[in-house]
Design a binder for these strands. Sequence first.
DNA 1: GTCTATACAAAGATAGAC
DNA 2: GTCTATCTTTGTATAGAC
Lengths: 195, 195
Amino acid sequence: MRDTADHILDAAQDLIQTRGFSAMSFQDVADRVGIKKPSIVHHFPSKNALGEAVVRRYRERFAAALAAVRDDPEQDAWATLEFYFTPYLEFAHSAEKVCLCGALAGEILALPAGMRGEVRRFFENHQRWLEEILETGQGEGVFALFDAPRPVARLFVAALQGALLVKRTTGDIGQLLEVVETIRSCVRAGAKVDR
Amino acid sequence: MRDTADHILDAAQDLIQTRGFSAMSFQDVADRVGIKKPSIVHHFPSKNALGEAVVRRYRERFAAALAAVRDDPEQDAWATLEFYFTPYLEFAHSAEKVCLCGALAGEILALPAGMRGEVRRFFENHQRWLEEILETGQGEGVFALFDAPRPVARLFVAALQGALLVKRTTGDIGQLLEVVETIRSCVRAGAKVDR
DNA sequence: GTCTATACAAAGATAGAC
DNA sequence: GTCTATCTTTGTATAGAC
């Protein structure tokens, strides 16, 4: 049986991912978990603390998964890049889902300092990780980039996050698949840049 | 002297762009304009109506500017693309500014239906417009795209919106400039794709 | 660990004077 | 067109029983 604290975190994360942190209330979380409002306070002393715990867990899980794939000698650069697409493609199955940190970026100035820091670390980590993967793949001749690994990594992270948000707004799930496919064709070694 | 309704719209837009719609209140708007809460209601009967008016004005202004440049025979494809970067680069001057619709995309499911429709139309219009520009430029041999105009246009819009949000989160203004520069090098005719 | 009850502030909105 | 005053709901958070 699942721990109540975990259950609360799951409910809060889903609410933030869909409605945003400002629009989420203890009442919403309590209703989903099937408890009363004060029971949440027993596990998380304030709404800010709950929000920070949600983002920290999300960021740490993501970071651990990315580090594991990067350090797995079985995975080549292409497989590693494809692994990075996986969560985005899972978000694409539903019209409503976006990345937790992408959703929070829209209201970042209204968030408590602890949450802002977690979201910032999330993006910095993703950009550094992808830059490293692109550089490795480029060195091995697997990727052909039209610019340096750093700006290209930033372009890709921004495009994937932006595509999730636009997808949910327009309701066009194909949006995300198109962007992922375009990124693939963008780094494909067969598409050598000549200049 | 500026009309009060316009003043209210300006204040509300700035508040939504920074904190988000859910976190914005009549009190915040009233304080900025220098009036009391009920005076706002006289101009906009509800918070939802005010929010919808803000997004509609923003979308219509943007659409008019884009259409004007597209239909100006003086502007070639490159100048038109550069024109599209202008507002994004202006957002880049401040660490806090993002596109109104990019900010709203994060909390889209918490918005009233009228606002959701406006944000959707904003993105659909931008994607169609940019697709058309890319196609024209490609036909004239000015742009060299690594994929069809439609997916490339979607990638660019998503990347620009995502870059604004990431920029504000990390506080790194260079983020946006890098992405714009990467997009430029990405369509440059000198960088012909060979496959 | 969960509950009832409650405190306190802030929200959106309305009525009616000026 | 703007104000004061007020209504009603909802928010976060606390106190204390079980």
